[in-house]
Design a protein around this nucleic acid. Sequence first.
DNA 1: ACGTGTCTGTTGTTTTTACAACAAAATTTT
DNA 2: AAAATTTTGTTGTAAAAACAACAGACACGT
Lengths: 223, 223
Amino acid sequence: MDKYYNQVKNSSLFYGISDEELRGILECFRARVRTYDSGEVIIRRGERVLNLYMVLEGCVNIEKDSFWGRRIIVSRVNPNENIALAFVAAKNVSNVDAVAAKKTKLLVLSYEKCTSMCQNACTRHRVLINNMFEILSKENIELIQKIENVSQKSIRDKLLTYLSNEAQKNKSNVFEVGFNRQDLADYLNIDRSAMCFELSKLQKEGLISYQKNKFMLNSRVID
Amino acid sequence: MDKYYNQVKNSSLFYGISDEELRGILECFRARVRTYDSGEVIIRRGERVLNLYMVLEGCVNIEKDSFWGRRIIVSRVNPNENIALAFVAAKNVSNVDAVAAKKTKLLVLSYEKCTSMCQNACTRHRVLINNMFEILSKENIELIQKIENVSQKSIRDKLLTYLSNEAQKNKSNVFEVGFNRQDLADYLNIDRSAMCFELSKLQKEGLISYQKNKFMLNSRVID
DNA sequence: ACGTGTCTGTTGTTTTTACAACAAAATTTT
DNA sequence: AAAATTTTGTTGTAAAAACAACAGACACGT
């Protein structure tokens, strides 16, 4: 636990909270670290979400299985980010599954238990709300971004939009993609083999180059 | 303005706020009503969003134009709902255009001006934050829902998923769709004519029936 | 009621995508 | 290091969607 203290302290969720406050919060919310194996389900669709989760190591896919068995990856949650905050905030049943994409460590806080005891009014609670507010609004904007990605009409346009956005996030035209090919295809809602084909076409045309998960965008894509 | 007072008072944004508080807020935030013609742009991509907006009458499309000129409708904002709250909350530049889908009246509040004057600390401001927090988390969940809609693999599945969700929202298998055909197609990211074709196929097969914008889902769809 | 413009539905053709099957490369296990 | 498993890339074919072009229905203003 102490191993992750600084990481936790510097995360968006606990931004601007003093050491003493933070220690109080971690105790009040019964903070603990839990490890999940790759593929293990953290939150299942239909469940109430009672905990706040923050990724310490590894990463988590937010998924939906369509009625016909096809998997949709709604989003990918990386270290220092939170899982299913919206469902906690809205006191809502989860609409999605959260699944560890590899071996993953999470910080878990018993949000509901603590906030119901102090009738939603203690100062610790209020500080968190402010930060959650910020995070939610940013998540909102990210979801809109993702909608733009998957709304492109062709595989080519989806890839170029996605890759441009990643380059922008990384502030560099060379960057690593966190997804493997199948997961990326499920994220962009396209067929994996068709995606691979289009990727190598883009490479042959000189628009991009890549080795494994390391991608490079050539200038004409970025302009 | 007074004409809309009750509507405003009962909206999510002002939920649980007393009459005296509300009158204070409306004054402090320089509330005013503004009318937009169909097609008029309310917020333009790239602009800072400085106001809170609530739809009083009409409705608003949240749109993106793809680089290649194709229009994407990210979401539709109906009466009593708010526009681009996430961008206000995140103090961010807008990522989208907001466009009146028909003649529309909006309540406009100068959010930035008021909150900067009172250094983000007055009580009126804090009450609003709490409500905005609730609204943002629900919007988040809605966006995830929308991602599920557009992530279906076929036009048929997109339509069935969308229509089932609408039926659920309306708590009835008979309901009106707010979109016209072109807008619905832009919302689901499909070609309008192909969508019309699939709709009439679904009707011939007896899964749905419709006249103009009034739809009915037959029981086998809902099961 | 009439013309004008917009919206909706239909059809045929072209383009794109999904799917299946497999080869090559990389990673993990033994 | 060899074997086994997983991941990635390639190709051909079948299915689906986009596109274009048009006809009919509807809405609006005069």
